[in-house]
Amino acid sequence: MIYLRLFWEFFKTGLFAVGGGMATIPFLSEMAERTGWFTQGMLADMIAVGESTPGPIGVNTATYVGFTVAGVPGGIVATLGLVLPSFLIILLVAAFLKAFRTNKYVERVFYGIRPASVGMIGAACVAVMRLCLVDTAAFAESRALADLFHWKGMALFALIWVLTNLVKGTKKLHPVIFIAASAAVGIVFRFAGA
């Protein structure tokens, strides 16, 4: 029963992803690996759409994955699965708000989880980089270092990094602007070779 499996997969994601929408990415990446429902490349595209449309990124990406796997009902089931654990947890936390904020065990647990969550998102970042910045297949064939990198991709990556971190005027621009500009660059310079 695909809907039950979808719901369960996203329930787990919602239960263990701490730190907002980006924290769901490692779970989705592992889901792709294990279930074969979608590829890492498709996941990167879905994240991009999730970032460039209104609404929380985590919810957008869940809806998209669910839709890809099992149509409109799939999108609904995946989203509800993602939301249910935090819904229940917040109801519980709200009842003990003061105790929760000052509880030393809660503080200790999150002291450990926070850096782990960043490590997992970092690993997901490495996975997307492997996908669009290096070409290990071509490198294995020719053994020429020049073939290891997607040079166009590297150049665009460096440019976006500089614009989002160093240049004062563009640092605060909304991500959707960079996504739209990258789409244009991809089309003009034929990033997919198509």
Partner: peptide
Amino acid sequence: NAFAGIRVCVCALILNAVVKLWKKA
């Protein structure tokens, strides 16, 4: 082609998110 360009951008955006979260965690 558009999505191949966008993927590169997503790379950079995730990296920025990691750096930001890293500082707090």
